[in-house]
Amino acid sequence: MTEALLYGLVAGVSIGFAAGYIGSLMVLKRMALVGDAMSHVALPGLALGLLLGFNPFLGAFAFLFTAAVVTWYLEQATKLSVESIVGVLFVLALAVGILLTPEPDLLEALFGNIASVTWLYAVAAVMVSIVVVLLTRVVYHRVVLSLISEELARSTGVRVAQVNLVYLLLVALIVAAGIQIVGSLLVGALVILPGAAMKNVGSSLDRYGVLSGIAGTVSATAGILLSAAVNLAAGPLIVVVGVVLFLGVIVAHQVVRAA
């Protein structure tokens, strides 16, 4: 096992869990496409980092952070659905990002590159994942309650707008962390697939969140190991494994229900 592969696995296991856990909420909020499209915003940030010579992932996070705040603000101010805001703004970000990114780096920015993972990145990924999981745990039930009824949540003192903002920022953080492995085009899948797979399986909210996290970890680990075995890019393989898991869970669930 090469060092890069080991570091990639460490990062993949932790980011996979955190992304699956936080993504379980995104699926409940019916923001699956938002999570996917939002990740594209990272591209212009990556490009600026490459062009101007600072860490591209800081650039990606800055853009994702801004996108999260803008989405949140427009949703509050205009009452447009998040889906329409994303549809308008985020494809633009992707287009601009592709134009800006120097061509040799474009492929890596779009699809990630596990071979360039360093120990520093692995450590940062683990720490970011821990922070994201812990903070998501704090807001998890509040997000769900405001989903069931915003008025019910507000009448019990939940600050719905603030909770949503914190949630979006956490999504931005984990998406930025995942780009190195999966790339900005596919990183949204890391967030969405596990929650979508486990939605009808979890018999309670807590179990659903944890199962989604585990599904994320399994996809990331299996995808990375597979990529080492067949010598193909890890990012797309992680997504493929995630989709296979998603389909497998759906079929198994139907079989169990029919039996």
Partner: peptide
């Protein structure tokens, strides 16, 4: 004051009654 709202959305949410009540 306790409040029961007119509209709520639960169709898609895998939350149990225990978890729902324990929130409060």
């Amino acid at each position: 004051i306790g409040y029961v709202p007119q509209q709520f959305y639960v169709t898609d949410v895998p939350i149990t009654i225990r978890e729902f009540l324990a929130f409060k």
